[in-house]
Design a protein around this nucleic acid. Structure first.
Lengths: 200, 200
DNA sequence: TGCATCTCCAACGCAACCGTTGGAGATCTG
DNA sequence: CAGATCTCCAACGGTTGCGTTGGAGATGCA
């Protein structure tokens, strides 16, 4: 049934999704055309519709896929102190630097302000585990508890993500200083460290 | 020449720009149609082209206008201590809450990743004054100097802006806690305070 | 009042894109 | 090899949106 097919349907799907990630990340939902996704994948446009439905559905599929990837790539198990929070912030920044598509997809999605997002349940669950890790660390006095765990976790992600959300602002604010991706990462880790350090 | 005209050209321009802000903020450059802007303003589409040029030019005009507004609305003159930084962060958050269009326009712009941004010179200048205010406060030991002034200023803006950049993430991360706009503001002000407080 | 000028708009040409369809070719089954 | 089934695609209809144009109405000027 599905073994030994010469026309390679799984491979075709994979190529289409890969192309869709690139196009959607670059141009958003409105700016992307199905035509270009298909052409980039070297596949006929019609395959998109039979495999993935219409354009919004494809966008949702692609975004869910990328989120699953980041969940696997940047685990957050145990926070044994402020330094662990700083390292986590650095990892997130690093992941964004290497996979700018995900950030951009998230931002496109945020701007669409849908009442419900695709895969809402599993994503809520994903974030809940992050918040829970922060909460546990607070309860054991390993990190500061002056902020609610959800706020602290959210703000740490803000520090790491803002560079990619408004790159034009980052560029203009650092116009006359000598700033590099490395110094940006160091700065945000320093900031995360202080947010997580308990008061004496 | 320009007094006493029965057909009210300045008013028409104003209405078109107002409609354009709303449409571009809601749907971005790609998702907005000139037709809908004109219809929302109650004016014929052709006026857009004679007054503002094509769609990208209109977008640039509208964004520059909104940035001038925020520059006037949230001044940052003198930072005499960490509390002033926290208040500034709170004001920025507040402004975003009341004028979500600006944030959204900035984010749409960021996603377009143009090599150069409209009004680049004056905007760079605008950010430079913000950074300079932070730098002065650092030199007089009023606030922490463990981060470069540009990074500190940028990260403070990150704290205030991230809620509006990824509202879906904010919602999901705070799913099971009781979180309000007021508590979000309090959290980010607390965070800004700690980033700006000098080490002993 | 005749002429020039300016504001405004309905209607249009044109291009792009969405989503579909009819059918060609490849693979399995008997 | 004949028939059924599946993958793939070139071509198409219909819609939408961009940017323009030709002209109608309102105003200033001689």
């Amino acid at each position: 049934m599905l073994a030994g097919m010469a026309w390679n349907t799984e491979e075709t799907k994979r190529k289409l999704k890969e192309a869709a990630v690139a196009e959607f990340a670059a141009h958003g939902l409105g700016g992307t055309t199905m035509e270009r996704i298909a052409r980039r994948a070297g596949v006929n446009k019609e395959r998109l519709y039979t495999y993935f439905g219409d354009k919004p559905q494809l966008f949702a599929t692609v975004l869910a896929d990328e989120l699953n990837k980041v969940a696997a790539a940047v685990p957050l198990d145990h926070l044994d102190g402020p330094e662990a929070v700083a390292r986590y912030a650095g990892s997130v920044y690093e992941y964004h630097a290497e996979h700018p598509e995900l950030t951009r997809l998230l931002l496109w999605e945020g701007l669409l302000d849908l009442p419900e997002v695709p895969d809402e349940a599993s994503r809520t669950d994903y974030y809940r585990t992050k918040v829970a890790a922060f909460a546990r660390a607070q309860q054991s006095n390993a990190i500061s508890d002056r902020l609610p765990a959800a706020d602290l976790a959210f703000l740490v992600l803000a520090l790491a993500g803002w560079w990619y959300a408004v790159p034009q602002m980052a560029r203009m604010m650092h116009a006359d200083s000598s700033s590099t991706p490395a110094s940006a990462k160091a700065a945000l880790m320093q900031a995360a460290l202080h947010l997580a350090t308990p008061s004496k």
